[in-house]
Design a protein around this nucleic acid. Structure first.
Lengths: 326, 326
DNA sequence: GTGAAAGCGCTAACAA
DNA sequence: TTGTTAGCGCTTTCAC
């Protein structure tokens, strides 16, 4: 049998109210009582039932995280960073990998709400899910536009796109392709592409975007990349919207006899921890993951505390990771 | 105000028992009632409170995952795979990144128990935490020995170590170093080293293990690797106990003017999805992550259902990923 | 300083 | 086929 507050009370010879008081240390308690109760808890190895407490308090100290998948260097690092900050702030993490499946995202959303999470941090791909609106649950979005009153934390995507494109142009590339997901997703990440197009035009170069969807499996992505080289044989520079795509492009290019960076220059985006260890040669735009996590958690916690005076958009500067691919 | 079962009952003109019945569809219900209740739920946008249900049922449909960190290709993929299988089995995931901190692991363990998780899947580094023993909570360990009655799922570490070492020897390496974490951790992963030592001795070669602790930060690891090359200047082969270490060794070797695989042959371990995309040239032993996740979840679910007839050790075969580093 | 009692939102005997 | 009632383990008001 699991030991509960009554058992402790009985053993300590007090009422359960008193045990609850020492548990939460509030109200007047004599030192003797406190000691007795602590001893009883020790000897019974008592662990309070958080669920019962949650039901009463209407507060779970649980935060839901909805992201595409932690099987990705960027999201893995981001989720780890969020988890760390949330832990320090006293929250546990319920995770939902949406796998870019709107159905799964919606299910998760409903279940997390049903589980009474105190807040949500969302970086999944799919907008337009009704539940995000029909709730006054505190929500923070990372690099996603959810709706008008949900605060967004993002890296400086425009600056990142600009830096990447300039890096390519300055190293002599002229026929530069950008890879990106489909535009129908309204994400701040598309500002990378906007910047790319602006910079290209500034330099009187023609921008081309080739679609590589984040949710495709590896083989589908690989053929999209192969297609890209067929469609644009004159390509001498690529700005990939994430490092996994960049790595794939690198591989395909190499298999086609291209030398990097002599024949083809590549700049990626994300610069996650494990990417920088596994493929440090890739020049990339490093997202400030730790900083984003810090700001996201801070923002969410303020919202949970009832602060209504929260900036709707917080943009965090990026920096360049100098590899050897430009 | 949040809508609860009473509100639905009132609107539908029935008792809350009836609403509860249609919610869980059990017992006899007339079609008319079912319809009325569903309509009331719809129009009020009712979401049942899972916490209240959990308190009553003493079942949360929550599983805790305790792993070092999802900011790592292997653990990221493993956690994603576990989450997927658990979701399909009707469980949500509470995550705890122990960061190899025994204190944090213990705190998580206590809080997950307090949150009444139905089960635990553990792949953290630290054994000897008392709570794992003082509980009859269903627990499954991945690649870790917890205690005598906790089932362990592991890849075939011995075979992996054997394959790796043979790969190096067959490609002509003679002075082969193995990197591993400290031995004081009693993990099945050390069988990789045992196999390495056995195979080396079989070939009348001298085994040497160089310690690279998983929990060190990247700079500390890097200097450990640099030290390795100083200590063993004649090294011509390395069997690294994980791919991140292998990548680091590759980098340091290259910076020292070594050519891979001509001057130095490297075999890693793990072969996670993102590693194979970012660094496909690395020859490595691929852990059957999906399979391990599948078996782990299946085992946990049987335990949760009360099955006591569970194999204590389940070993899953590995395979070689042929890169270009041997 | 401490305890009795009510109630958080739900489910399940038991009755009807 | 449906409703009444008790209770899951905890916290908190109110009384003493």
């Amino acid at each position: 049998m699991v030991v509960k507050i009554d058992d402790v009370a009985r053993l300590a010879g007090v009422s359960k109210t008193t045990v609850s008081r020492v548990l939460n240390n509030r109200g007047y308690l004599s030192d003797a009582t406190i000691k007795k109760v602590h001893e009883a808890m020790e000897s019974l190895n008592y662990q309070p039932n958080a669920v019962a407490r949650q039901l009463f308090k209407k507060e779970t100290k649980l935060v839901g995280l909805i992201f595409p998948t932690v099987d990705n260097p960027f999201f893995g690092q981001l989720v780890a960073a969020l988890e760390k900050r949330l832990f320090d702030a006293g929250f546990k993490v319920l995770i939902g990998n949406s796998m870019n499946d709107p159905k799964k995202e919606e299910t998760y959303l409903k279940e997390l709400i049903s589980n009474q999470v105190d807040g949500l941090i969302v970086g999944a791909q799919n907008r337009g899910i009704e539940e995000y609106h029909n709730t006054n649950l505190p929500v923070v979005a990372i690099d996603r536009v959810m709706n008008e009153d949900i605060p967004v934390i993002a890296s400086d995507n425009y600056m990142g796109g600009k830096l990447a494109t300039e890096l390519l142009i300055n190293s002599g590339a002229k026929n530069i392709i950008n890879t990106d997901g489909p535009v129908n997703l309204e994400t701040p990440a598309h500002r990378r592409r906007e910047a790319y197009e602006d910079v290209m035009k500034e330099h009187r170069l023609v921008p081309h975007t080739h679609i590589v969807d984040f949710s495709w499996d590896i083989e589908k992505k690989r053929s999209a990349v192969e297609e890209m080289f067929v469609e644009y044989p004159e390509v001498d520079g690529v700005f990939a919207t994430n490092d996994m795509d960049a790595a794939l492009i690198w591989q395909v290019a190499t298999s086609l006899g291209c030398q990097i960076p002599k024949d083809l220059k590549i700049v990626g985006y994300d610069g996650a921890n494990s990417t920088r260890i596994l493929l440090p040669e890739l020049t990339t735009i490093e997202q400030p993951v730790e900083q984003m996590a810090k700001v996201a958690v801070k923002t969410l916690v303020s919202r949970i505390k009832g602060d209504r005076n929260i900036p709707l958009e917080q943009i965090i500067p990026v920096k360049v990771w100098n590899g050897k691919s430009v």
